[in-house]
Design a protein around this nucleic acid. Structure first.
Length: 269
DNA sequence: AAAGACACCTGTCCGC
DNA sequence: TGCGGACAGGTGTCTT
């Protein structure tokens, strides 16, 4: 999916089009997403969108009649289009606004979700027990050192676990470990405090840069205006497309937790 | 509590 | 060209 920078990019693209707008119609073209789209969503027709928020990789939409919790899964994206624009093959949800614009949810693999929340979406069972936001002050070296102390798993798996820190998926895990020169296979509990501090900094730097570039597009992701995410050009190891930019040796691909890991054996010890 | 495997689904790419 | 298999941004759930 869409990792944190792609969800943040989506939120920023949507905000100016949605805030204060009244929802005139909600069409569920394909209810079979990761979970069936609840029919309560339709009760938001006629409501006014008051605010948007991102928590982890969830996009929260608050209206005066209830809230929506969105997740983009592996291949989801959102676009703003004129309501007259025809729907395409994998467009599963269409929300028509009172000004002739519309929000479209597109997701070829259908691993994404749209859920309804009567009360505080931050207290939803999928969300309430998640770890800190990586760009917040709560995610700092003291915190990461403490949470790695007892962990026997590889550091890459540890930072992709949403109970440690949210928002980091396969791409940004690989890129952060490259930037901090840490071998992804190293057990979390065996990494020095100094190096974990460097990792915290690397994560914050990479995510901020990716947000500035509008995220990373591999196949499906697009910004809300249809442009791709330009951080793809800044990837150092993910995708194995080129040699290591530091030492020029080939990038290595291994499998960890059924996901591909890309790293430089020479630079990441 | 923690770690690992599996499932969900569609599309693309590569080798034969 | 066609077909089979591997692989793809995530994460809840089940099993050890």
């Amino acid at each position: 999916m869409p990792e944190l920078p792609e969800v943040e990019t989506t939120l920023r693209g949507l905000e100016p089009h949605l805030l204060g707008r009244r929802i005139s119609q909600i069409q569920i073209r394909q209810p079979r997403l990761r979970w069936p789209v609840p029919t309560e969503i339709l009760s938001l027709q006629g409501s006014t969108i008051q605010s948007l928020q991102r928590r982890a990789k969830y996009l929260l939409m608050y209206t005066d009649q209830g809230n929506m919790i969105w997740h983009l899964g592996m291949s989801g994206s959102m676009r703003i289009l004129p309501s007259t624009e025809p729907s395409t093959r994998h467009e599963h949800i269409k929300i028509t606004l009172d000004n002739g614009a519309s929000l479209r949810y597109i997701d070829p693999r259908r691993f994404g979700a749209l859920l309804f929340s009567d009360d505080d979406p931050l207290q939803h069972k999928l969300i309430h027990s998640l770890g800190p936001e990586p760009l917040s002050d709560d995610f700092n070296s003291d915190y990461l050192i403490e949470s790695c102390k007892q962990r026997s798993s590889a550091i890459k798996n540890a930072i992709m676990d949403g109970h440690t820190v949210v928002g980091i998926g396969n791409i940004y895990a690989c890129e952060s470990l490259f930037l901090s020169a840490i071998n992804p296979k190293t057990k979390a509990c065996r990494i020095s405090a100094r190096r974990l501090q460097a990792l915290v900094q690397a994560i914050k730097t990479i995510l901020q840069q990716a947000i500035q570039q509008g995220g990373t597009t591999l196949q499906d992701f697009a910004q809300t205006d249809g442009r791709p995410g330009y951080f793809s050009q800044s990837l150092n190891v993910y995708g194995n497309k080129a040699d290591c930019p530091v030492c020029a040796r080939p990038v290595t691909r291994i499998t960890q937790g059924q996901r591909s890991t890309f790293y430089c054996k020479n630079c990441q010890k």
